[in-house]
Amino acid sequence: MTVDPPLVLDVDGTLTRPDRWGIDPRVFDPIRDWDAPVVIATGKAFPYPVALCHFVGIPELVVAENGGVVYTGDDVFFTADREAAQAVVEEYRARGYSPGWGEENTVNRWRETEIAVNLEQPIGPLREIAAEHGLEVVDTGYAYHVKDTSPNKGDGVATIADHVGFDLDDCVAIGDSVNDVSTFEVVGRSFAVSNADESAKSAADEVVDLPHADGTLSVLDRVRSA
């Protein structure tokens, strides 16, 4: 009898459709039926992956905001402070730029530890200002994330593994971006979907032939039947 390994799943570019927006609903059933912990590790604001877990019907094991927020199902750990990132964005605004999300800015409304800027905005001055504040800008392919240099997804996954009680060496991780590299470094086996950026492809143990949710589903089928 095979035993499902613990999973670490990115969201954007990994569980989504090829048009880049919206989770592919085909991933719901295999994730819900997985007989091991499933960690959702994403750059999205904290409420989004919690809601995803809730609607899929799995325990809320979450690494959000690129490691800035870690939720073990019992405890929430904040590993960074939004204040410095907010200061960077305010200076960015003062120089005549914008986060680029419109007045309501739901992308950042519930973000606790970082600020995301639309990819249509210039990254050069954003990186310059961030560096002056001792922060970094991570381009995930979906947004520019202004964040503390210390937190990352891999550390968040390790925190959850320690609290929940599973072995990182048994974990399988799937992702598509530079912010997944730290996860790939701490788990036993890692896969990059074919639409992944070069940093994720280089860090992964294997690059699958299919993109987005198709690639993820192919990995789930393979590791479940191994």
Rank of each mutant, 00 (worst) to 15 (best):
L7I: 10
V8N: 01
V11P: 00
V11T: 00
R20A: 14
V27D: 02
F28D: 03
D29I: 12
D29A: 14
D33A: 14
D35Y: 13
V38G: 02
P47W: 04
P47G: 02
A51W: 11
V56Q: 01
V56E: 04
V62C: 06
E65M: 13
V69E: 04
V70G: 03
Y71S: 07
A85G: 04
V88M: 04
R95S: 14
R95I: 12
P99I: 01
E104V: 15
V107S: 05
E112Y: 14
E112I: 11
E114T: 14
N118Y: 13
N118D: 15
I123Y: 10
R127V: 05
A131T: 09
G134T: 07
D139Q: 08
V146L: 07
V146A: 00
D148T: 11
N152Y: 14
N152D: 15
K153P: 03
A158V: 08
T159I: 14
A161N: 04
F166Q: 06
L168R: 00
S177V: 13
F184G: 00
F184K: 03
F191E: 05
A192I: 01
S199R: 15
K201R: 15
S202D: 14
E206Q: 12
V208L: 08
V208E: 04
L210I: 09
A213V: 05
G215D: 02
L217H: 06
S225T: 15
A226D: 13
